[in-house]
Amino acid sequence: MSRQDHIREFAAQALSEGRVDYFIGWKEGFNPSEVIPAFVKEVAQVDQLLWNPLCHHNLVTFLKRNMPDPPEAKIGVCVKGCDSRTLVALLQEQLVDRERLYVVGVPCDGIMDRRRLEKEFAEEIVDIAFSEKGQVVVTTRSGEKREFDQQAVLLDMCTRCRYPNPLYADDMAGPAVPEPDREESQPDWSDLADYEALSDDGKQELLARIYATCVRCFACINVCPVCVCWDRCVNRSRQPELVSQKVETKSNLLFQMVHMFHVAGRCPSCGACDRACPVEIPLYLLHRKMNKELYDMFGFEPGTKLDEKPVFQVFNLADQFGD
């Protein structure tokens, strides 16, 4: 039984038994190269649900405050490994009600970097298919077909993943995938190396260039599953105006730093913000770095233990910070 079949079966069961009002999974978008979040309300619709390496959306986003509709809905939801960490982070702080959730864990082999594929073609991609042998076949609108090695077009963060298996789930869609020995290995932060090697001035120059393109659409914070006050955000406040509403490099960067600090300890770098940004700002430079430092400071990986408190909600008398 494939993972997809498992998901459909779990969804059908939960819906028919009335355990959930709706079930959130993934389905095909406006063409087979696109996958979008699916909200299934009836058993007859569960065949829409699919699972493939294009299912990048972190569906935990739709559980956070003011997203469920109606607000007290009982919700079934699919989570990948990284998604489950955001869910655990929300549960640690009781920001979602566990009683109203039904969670299907989906072990994950890595998600496609669709944007990287897009850049390989001048034309529009209309189909992405996956062969048994780990190949990805991309078709454009005029019918051009090209094959890629699946491992070579994964999201960068997926190639460094330490938690491919969901850490919290009521049911698992199939057997676990192999995962690194976390006792033995350290997280791989080499994606930050190029940036970190820059001089102070080099960093400022790069950031100035990157953040000049931000359009303040707030997709990054709205899509962020752990950014729970998304619709009451300090970044949008005009009275007092803590972050200028002016769209300019300085306040754009300040806005991102505010987001980064406010989710510190909760954000496992699921990358949802990176993928949502319409102008492709490399937000990982901030949140991956933040997680790197938290790991260095506390050996802490957000959203991994249900009974753990996030690092900024507790303290230790023996902390060795400051002079």
């Binding site: 909200f39 359009v215 659409c217 707030f218 997709a219 709205n222």
Partner: peptide
């Protein structure tokens, strides 16, 4: 309207592009 907007994250991307 509620069903159609379930997956909307209420950001401003559509209006800004």
């Amino acid at each position: 309207w509620h069903d159609l907007c379930l997956r909307c994250i209420s950001c401003g991307t559509c209006t800004y592009v």
